[in-house]
Simulated scan of single mutants.
Amino acid sequence: MTSININKEKFGQLIHKEKPVLVDFWAPWCGYCRRIGTAYEKISEEYSDILIAGKVNIDEEPQ
């Protein structure tokens, strides 16, 4: 499973799940964010049985 896109509503739902939630706050203009994106996806796939990995685009979800 790859990481999921998270908005404010989805975040509220995810934090009440049994698995911990790993969140990557990123932006399309952020070079560092794009560089770690591949590693983050690998973590998301490798640990999908024990955690939920999600990404929040801070330009679309500033709150």
Results as ranks from 00 to 15, higher is better:
2 T>G: 15
2 T>S: 15
2 T>P: 15
3 S>E: 14
3 S>I: 04
4 I>V: 15
4 I>M: 11
5 N>R: 10
6 I>K: 15
6 I>P: 14
7 N>T: 02
7 N>L: 02
7 N>H: 03
7 N>S: 03
9 E>Q: 07
9 E>V: 01
10 K>E: 08
10 K>Q: 04
10 K>D: 07
11 F>W: 14
11 F>P: 10
11 F>K: 12
11 F>H: 14
11 F>R: 13
12 G>W: 00
13 Q>G: 05
13 Q>H: 07
13 Q>A: 15
14 L>W: 11
14 L>N: 11
14 L>P: 13
15 I>Y: 10
15 I>N: 09
15 I>D: 03
16 H>Q: 12
17 K>V: 05
17 K>P: 03
17 K>F: 04
18 E>H: 05
18 E>S: 07
18 E>L: 04
19 K>A: 07
20 P>F: 08
20 P>W: 08
20 P>S: 04
20 P>H: 06
21 V>H: 11
21 V>D: 13
21 V>I: 09
22 L>S: 06
22 L>D: 08
23 V>R: 11
23 V>D: 11
24 D>W: 03
24 D>S: 10
24 D>F: 04
25 F>C: 14
25 F>V: 06
25 F>M: 07
25 F>T: 07
25 F>H: 13
26 W>Y: 12
26 W>T: 02
26 W>F: 08
26 W>C: 01
27 A>P: 12
27 A>L: 09
28 P>E: 05
28 P>I: 02
29 W>D: 03
31 G>H: 14
31 G>I: 03
31 G>S: 08
31 G>Q: 06
31 G>D: 05
32 Y>A: 07
34 R>C: 00
34 R>S: 08
34 R>Y: 00
35 R>K: 14
36 I>Q: 15
36 I>C: 15
36 I>M: 15
36 I>T: 14
37 G>R: 02
37 G>P: 01
37 G>L: 01
37 G>T: 00
38 T>I: 15
38 T>W: 14
38 T>F: 11
38 T>A: 15
38 T>H: 15
39 A>P: 09
40 Y>L: 06
40 Y>R: 04
40 Y>T: 04
41 E>G: 09
41 E>R: 13
41 E>P: 12
41 E>N: 14
42 K>G: 03
42 K>S: 07
43 I>R: 06
43 I>D: 07
44 S>T: 01
44 S>M: 01
45 E>L: 07
45 E>C: 02
46 E>K: 13
46 E>R: 13
47 Y>T: 10
47 Y>V: 08
47 Y>E: 09
47 Y>P: 05
47 Y>Q: 12
47 Y>N: 07
47 Y>H: 13
47 Y>R: 08
48 S>Q: 06
49 D>R: 10
49 D>P: 01
49 D>A: 12
50 I>T: 12
50 I>D: 03
52 I>M: 04
52 I>L: 05
53 A>P: 09
53 A>K: 10
53 A>T: 14
53 A>C: 14
54 G>Y: 03
55 K>H: 00
56 V>K: 01
56 V>S: 09
56 V>E: 02
56 V>I: 13
57 N>A: 02
57 N>I: 00
57 N>P: 01
58 I>S: 01
58 I>G: 03
58 I>P: 06
59 D>C: 01
60 E>F: 06
60 E>A: 12
60 E>Q: 14
60 E>P: 10
61 E>V: 11
61 E>F: 03
61 E>S: 00
61 E>G: 01
62 P>W: 02
62 P>D: 03
62 P>V: 06
62 P>C: 04
63 Q>E: 08
63 Q>T: 11
